[in-house]
């Protein structure tokens, strides 16, 4: 009798969480799959009493859609470029941080700062830095007259100013800006994790290497990196997952139009595509795209896990 009373109490404690999860987590899983497999499903039409046939038309349409392929391309490009760069930089910074004593805490705090920012707000700062300042009307002369701080620095070192994000800018220039911003944004988390890992490595390994007279780079690649591999695998996997969901950093720099003023949507991503479909009440297409995104993330994560299992040394 006491037992059944206890059972009842446990479910009482769980009730609020379970009710909310049922509505906002479990039901969406089923419903999103359902909508994805109903041809041209639209919430608006469904409310009007229309019924939809079962089929895989949404997936076909999404994949045939040129815009979606572009979103996929941009997302994948950003992912493939930013994850290795930010991981390598974070590794070098963490190793350097771990080898010094004075200033370590101060520098550690500085490197964590980008994490406690609003990615939209600081995106606007980056936009201002890359922007061409002044009343810009698209003529070549004006670009050179008032170039913006990043272009000023480039010119100082003898380069020529680049139209980074304004009207008439190239896709390559846009992507470069995004890569710089995303790497800047991704560093703090990676440094935090890697430095934590480094600090837990047993000092004996390094003493042994010193006795053997190993060089610094040999120690880094033969001792530090293998011992750090679980943490490296972790930051790479979370980096890829985050990368495939890239959206707000682009809104920060380019605004909700997701592209330079003369070519809105040029830098749209997978997540952006889903929200665009949602805002036009095409829930069927949005759901199909979301499932494709889930599939991609799953596959990438599994590949990462398989690779890291081979190369991870515990």
């Amino acid at each position: 009798m006491v037992e059944s009373k206890k059972q009842w109490k446990a479910w009482l404690y769980l009730a609020p969480a379970l009710v909310l999860l049922a509505i906002f987590t479990v039901w969406p899983i089923f419903n999103t799959v359902r909508m994805a497999f109903l041809e041209n499903y639209s919430g608006l039409k469904a409310a009007g009493g229309e019924t939809f046939a079962f089929g895989i038309g949404n997936f076909k349409k999404v994949l045939e859609y040129k815009k979606f392929v572009n979103c996929l391309k941009t997302t994948a490009l950003l992912c493939v470029a930013t994850v290795p760069i930010s991981t390598l930089l974070a590794l070098l910074i963490s190793v350097a941080l771990n080898s010094i004593k004075p200033l370590q805490r101060l520098l550690q705090t500085i490197f964590f700062l980008p994490y406690v920012t609003n990615s939209i707000a600081i995106g606007m700062v980056f936009a201002a830095m890359f922007n061409i300042v002044g009343s810009f009307h698209g003529t070549q002369n004006e670009i050179i007259a008032t170039a913006g701080i990043v272009n000023n620095v480039i010119e100082f070192f003898g380069g020529t100013a680049v139209n980074w994000i304004n009207s008439g800018s190239s896709y390559a220039a846009n992507i470069t800006v995004m890569i710089i911003y995303i790497v800047w944004n991704a560093l703090p988390f990676k440094i935090l994790i890697l430095l934590g890992g480094l600090q837990s490595i047993n000092k004996q390994y390094y003493d042994a290497a010193k006795v053997d007279g190993s060089t610094r780079s040999r120690i880094l690649w033969r001792i530090t990196v293998p011992l750090l591999s679980p943490m490296l695998a972790y930051v790479i996997i979370t980096g890829f997952i985050g990368g495939f969901k890239e959206y707000t950093s682009i809104v920060g720099i380019f605004g909700a139009t997701m592209g330079p003023p003369d070519d809105g949507g040029r830098l749209n991503t997978m997540v952006g595509f889903i929200y665009d479909a949602l805002s036009t009440n095409s829930q069927g297409r949005a759901s199909a795209a979301a499932l494709i995104l889930f599939g991609i993330i799953l596959v990438v994560t599994l590949i990462n896990l398989a690779v890291s299992k081979k190369n991870t040394h515990y």
Binding site: I23, F24, P28, M35, K245, I274, L278, Q283, A290, L293
Partner: peptide
């Protein structure tokens, strides 16, 4: 208890966008 907890943890793998679509209608 254990099955329920494992089930909850499993939902963490799913990207939030998948929930948002239905939650918006809800």
């Amino acid at each position: 208890k254990n099955i329920l907890f494992a089930g909850l943890l499993a939902t963490m793998m799913i990207p939030g966008e998948l929930f948002t679509i239905t939650n918006y209608s809800t």
